[in-house]
Design a protein around this nucleic acid. Sequence first.
DNA 1: GTAGTGTATGTAAGCGTTTACCTATAAATA
DNA 2: TATTTATAGGTAAACGCTTACATACACTAC
Lengths: 321, 321
Amino acid sequence: MVSIEDVAKEAGVSIATVSRVLNGSGYVSEETELKVLQAMKKLGYRPSLTARALAKKKAFNVGLLISTRIFELLSTELGEFYRIMISAIENSAEIYRLDVRILNFETEEIPKMDGYIIVGSDMEKEQIESLAKSSKVVLLDHYIEGLRVDSIVSDGYDGVYFVTELAISSGFNTIAHLHGPLKYFGFRDRYNGYIAAMTKYGRLPITMEYDELHEDVETALRKLFRDRKPDLIICSNDVIALQTLKKLQEWGVRIPEDVSVVGFDDIPSAAKNNLSTLRVQKSEMGLNAVKRLFELLNHQSTHPYKQCVYATYVKRGSSLV
Amino acid sequence: MVSIEDVAKEAGVSIATVSRVLNGSGYVSEETELKVLQAMKKLGYRPSLTARALAKKKAFNVGLLISTRIFELLSTELGEFYRIMISAIENSAEIYRLDVRILNFETEEIPKMDGYIIVGSDMEKEQIESLAKSSKVVLLDHYIEGLRVDSIVSDGYDGVYFVTELAISSGFNTIAHLHGPLKYFGFRDRYNGYIAAMTKYGRLPITMEYDELHEDVETALRKLFRDRKPDLIICSNDVIALQTLKKLQEWGVRIPEDVSVVGFDDIPSAAKNNLSTLRVQKSEMGLNAVKRLFELLNHQSTHPYKQCVYATYVKRGSSLV
DNA sequence: GTAGTGTATGTAAGCGTTTACCTATAAATA
DNA sequence: TATTTATAGGTAAACGCTTACATACACTAC
C-alpha cells in the first residue's frame, strides 16, 4: 500500500504538505501542489480512510430526530422496539465520536447539526428532503420511494420469502398471508416476498388485506377461511398475528396443531404470547445507521443506498415450522 | 471516549494485557482477565474499530469468483459493465489491504481464501451456500432470496419508481412497462417499482412480459400498442430498450416526440444510441463489496444485509422526461 | 545445580493520518 | 531601516490499537 510518506518522498516534500494539499488546508504554493498531485497520480495513492478517521479528533454532533408519537411510546411497554434501536445508537455513537442529541422534530425547532438520524416513518417527505439537502441524513426503519436518501430497513421481502419457502419445504399445504394495507411500503414489501415464494413453487397465493388499527380481525379471518382452511397464516406484523392468535383460540382452533401463525417484528408481547415471528434486528440496525452516518460525515460523496437487514426467524410455540 | 489506556489504568495492568483479553491472544491469568473485564464493564469500554483496523497489518486474501460467461464477456465490448466493477474492486482492495485474486469458479478448483466476492448470478445457490458456510462471502450484482448472504445490488425497485413518478409529474399520460421474465428477481424488482408508482398515483399499469433473448420484440410491442399507444415505455433493461428503439424507428415512430423510451443499466451502447436510462452504479457497487467484505473479515459477526444502491437517472435523447 | 519450558505481563514500535506549533522567507508597512 | 504580516513548509505529537520482543517467575528434567 502506498502511503502519504511515499508520496511525500516522491514529491520531495514533507508529509504535512501532502496532507495539506489533500485537505486543502493551510498554505501550499501552486508549484508544490502540482508536484504532490503528480506524485499521487504516479504512485496511485489512495488515502487510508481508517487512518484518517483515527487521526481526526473531530467530534460530529448528530440529531436523533423522533416524532411525538414515538417519544410517547418510549415510556410505555410498546416502546421497546424503539428503545432498543435508540440505545444501540447511543452506544455505538461513542465509538465513532458522535455527540448524539435526541430531538422531537414536531415540537422543537431542529438545530443545525452535522448529521441526522431520522427514526421511524412519521416525518413528512418534504421535510426529509429539505433536511437532506443541507445535511447528511440517514433514515432508520424508514424508506421513501424515489427519494434516494440513505435508509436502513428490515428486509421484509426476504424475511417473508424465507418462512414461506421454509414452510413449503416442510410440507405445509395451504399457506395464507394476512397483511396490512398495501399502500404502505413495509407491508407491500413483505407481501411481495410471500407472492414470490408461492409463485416460485407453483402455489396459489391466498391473501387478505386488513387494517389492524381500524378493522376487525374476525371479518378478515372469516373471509380468509371461506375457501380452504390454511394450515399456516403468515401475518404482516406481530400485532396482526396476535389478534389472529386470540381470535382463533376463541374459535377453538388449536394452535399450532390446526393452524400455525407467524408474525413479523418480534415485539415484546410476541415472546410473551409464544408467537413465532421474524425478528427485526433492532440494535444491529441502530448501529448500522450510526456507521453509515459516520461514513457520510467523513469521506462524503459515496452514493446513497438502502440497506435491507435480513430478519431472523424465531420459532416459538405458535407454529410447527 | 474511554480508551484501552483507561481500562488498563483502572485494572492496574498494561494496555498490552487489556488487548490480550480483548483478542483472546497470548497468556492472561484468570484473575487478571477478571479484573480487566470488570474495568471494561465499569467504564463502558468499547474498542475503536478504526484504531483496530489501522493497527492490524493483517492482509487478507480474497477470491473474486467469476463465471466463464463473464470471463469471456470481459474481453468484448459488452463486458464493460463487469470491467468497471472489477477494476473498482481491484482499486479499492488496496486501501483495505486485500490481496485480490481473480478466479473462474467453473473451471478452477476454488482455493481456500479468507473471503470471496462472487460477481454476477451464475453461481448455483448450493455452491454459494456451502462457500458462505466456511468463509466470508459477498454477492455482487446478485441476490438469492431467503439465503441471507450479504449482497450488493442495484435498486431496481427504487430506480423504476423514480422515473415513473418523474414521468407522471411531468405530465405523461400513458406509461407502459416492457419487462423481462418476472421469474428473475431483478426484473420483478423493477416491475414492482413500476406498479407501486402507478398505483400510488391512481394510474392503470400497462405491462408486457417478453424474453429479450428468445422472443421477438415486435410481437410484444404490437400487443403493448394494441389498446392505447403509450407516450413512455420504461424497459427492464437497456437491451430491451434498444431493441424497442430500433423497432419503433422501423415503424416510423418519432423518438422522443411520439414515444419516449427509457432503459436500465447504462451499458455502453446506451450512450451510443442516445438512450435515456437508469445507470447502475457499477464502481460504487464494486467498492462497497470490498468495504463490506472487509468489515466481515474484521469484526465479523455483524448481521448480514442486502445493500440496494440507488440507480441514477441519465437523461438522453430517447425521452422527454 | 543448570538448563529448558510454560506461563504471565510489560515495553515500545509501529499502523497512516491530521494538526498544533515552529521556522523561514518575501512583501508590506511604519 | 526596522517591524509586521502573509505565505510556505517542516517537525513531531497525537489518535487507539496490535504485537514482536524482552523480562520474570515457577516448574520440570537431567
